[in-house]
Amino acid sequence: THSPLSEGFSLLETERMAQSVVKSHVETSQYSTEELKRLAWNLYTAEETRTYQSKPMEAMWQQCVAHLTNAIQYVVEFAKRISGFMELCQNDQIILLKAGCLSVLLIQMCRAYNATNHTLLFDGKFASVQLFKSLGCDDLVNAVFELAKSMSRLQLTEEEMALFSAVVLFSPDRPWLTDRQPVQRLQGKVYQALQRCLNREGANEHKLNKMLAKLPAIKSICNLHIDKLEFFRLLHPETAYSFPPLYREVFGS
């Protein structure tokens, strides 16, 4: 999603950008790191898991879509508070959000992943892959859990995660952008901020490559989500039509 930088930014510029992105990330995270730590051992019981598993497919979709829609609002707010984003034209703001919000959520989701028992925070408690069985999307759910697992192995700091999310969000190659240059500049600045952050932490130089290597998996999950949604729409058109308008706006064609 990024092109190598042709222009350099001053240390001050990238520092300011890093501060803006990290501040925005902290302010707009649904759960703080402390809350996540506190919730870590709050697991669904076998009985509760079975209850989810026996839900009708439509009901489970509705519930997951409601969570996703709620989470999207936090991504919109994350973007809005990053300096420079609101200076883009509104058409381009919308294009970047539509194309990138699920990727941002997938990156930030690894905060809510517990590697000791391969569970993810869902509706206030940690859930296993099996809990989502009634969605009828085992491959999508597995891919999401596997991504969370491999992302959590990278042990990203909050700063790295915030900057990486912003790099992905500000992708200048999204189709239909009216003015790519300011998006490219914004991405370049965040990318350089991320590089500087990694250097400062003395991170292994491969860490950035490992982060970028997750992008194909993220993209494939985004595509799989659209495929599943299209299929669900064929099976249950009325339920799909009742999904929240924000969800339909973001994932409608």
């Binding site: 707009t28 609002q73 919308i94 308008p245 706006e249």
Partner: peptide, 20 residues
């Protein structure tokens, strides 16, 4: 614009769900 009514509104709102 009609197509992205909610996104437009979220982008224009100074108070967002996060602040509430």
């Amino acid at each position: 614009k009609e197509k992205h009514k909610i996104l437009h509104r979220l982008l224009q709102n100074s108070t967002s769900p996060v602040d509430l």
